[in-house]
């Protein structure tokens, strides 16, 4: 139905020719923008309702009862449903380790929470289909679990800033929300998030549509195809400065896939965009000494590169 609407506007109302560059680009743009905004609004709202039941205080309490391995798995899963903003990374980190959550388990949470987020998932689902979205969730969780276990095994507690261990942390009661409160929270959350990301979505879909209509087929196959072994690490490195713009990046990457970029490279790039960010590194340097910060980034980046190669081989 959306497709018909986009076709009608482009070819009948505006009168562009089907098959022309401009016509294809505009048709694609109208269809994708409407589809993405419908998906974003509904799913963010539903996710927000779920999230309102998992404030970080509750997540912390659940995780402080778990040791390694089981704890890492739990942390990665809870990372999906616990609301997280990189500006709260410091109080969150301190709250976790102070209440006895093992360092490696804390890192599993810190990797999964920004990486497996609803915006990235909706965009992947909308632009690549549900299979890729599911693969992204699965491998994202795996990267978070493995990275956390490795960091835990390395026994790096002494590379946490010393003041963190001496801090006095109060207990906060978990407020019980009624279903009505949750709906109000979800409405506000959806509104704020959409307000923040809509320009990126429009620009991203616009650029994607342009690429779709104007860039020649197989344009990228030579550089970003699966035969170039450097494509994955380069994609990961490019993802670091693009932090938190999953909404804008995915439509562009989707269009690039049709021009020959390999899917493993796409997944690795997406994970780097969401999980590895410079601003977050700067914020985390308040609680982590340089050695632990570099180890954290190094391990996560390596795991992501590995995921990229794996899916370039099997998909």
């Amino acid at each position: 139905m959306l497709k018909q609407f986009a076709d009608y506007v482009t070819f009948s109302l505006i009168g562009l020719k089907p098959g022309s560059h401009g016509g294809e680009a505009l048709d694609f743009f109208i269809y994708d923008t409407i589809k993405i905004f419908l998906l974003l609004t509904t799913i963010i709202f539903v996710v927000a309702i779920i999230r309102s039941s998992f404030p970080p205080e509750r997540t912390k309490r659940i995780l402080s009862h778990n040791r390694e391995y089981v704890g890492n798995v739990m942390a990665a899963l809870l990372g999906i449903v616990t609301p997280f903003c990189s500006c709260s990374a410091v109080p969150l980190f301190i709250g976790f380790v102070e209440s006895g959550v093992p360092l490696g388990v804390t890192f599993s949470f810190l990797v999964s929470s920004p990486m497996v987020n609803e915006v990235a998932l909706i965009m992947l689902w909308g632009m690549f289909g549900w299979k890729i979205a599911l693969i992204y969730i699965g491998t994202g969780l795996l990267v978070a679990i493995v990275s956390g276990i490795v960091i835990g095994r390395l026994k790096m507690e002494k590379y946490v800033q010393d003041y963190v261990w001496e801090m006095q942390v109060g207990q906060q009661e978990i407020e019980e929300l009624t279903f009505r409160d949750k709906l109000v929270y979800a409405r506000g959350y959806t509104r704020d998030l959409l307000k923040k990301i809509w320009p990126y979505v429009v620009i991203g879909v616009g650029l994607g549509a342009f690429i779709h209509g104007y860039v020649p087929q197989d344009f990228l196959a030579k550089w970003a195809g699966r035969d170039n072994p450097f494509a994955v690490p380069i994609a990961v490195a490019l993802g670091v400065p693009l932090y938190s713009n999953a909404a804008g990046v995915i439509p562009i990457v989707s269009a690039l896939t049709q021009k020959g970029m390999a899917i493993g490279t796409v997944l690795a790039f997406m994970m780097a965009v969401t999980a590895l960010s410079l601003p977050e590194a700067i914020i985390l340097s308040n609680v982590l000494k340089r050695r632990l910060l570099l180890t954290f980034f190094g391990i996560v980046a390596t795991a992501i590169v590995f995921v990229g190669y794996l899916f370039n081989i099997i998909l």
Binding site: P55, V90, P91, F96, V169, G170, E175
Partner: peptide, 28 residues
């Protein structure tokens, strides 16, 4: 400052405290 925020056990900012009691956290 982080120590004062942590004293209240708040893990997501912003938060509002009234006379030493946390009213809410992690939302605007």
């Amino acid at each position: 400052d982080i120590p004062s925020i942590m004293k209240y056990g708040v893990m997501s900012t912003p938060a509002l405290v009234k006379d030493g009691k946390v009213l809410f956290s992690g939302k605007l």
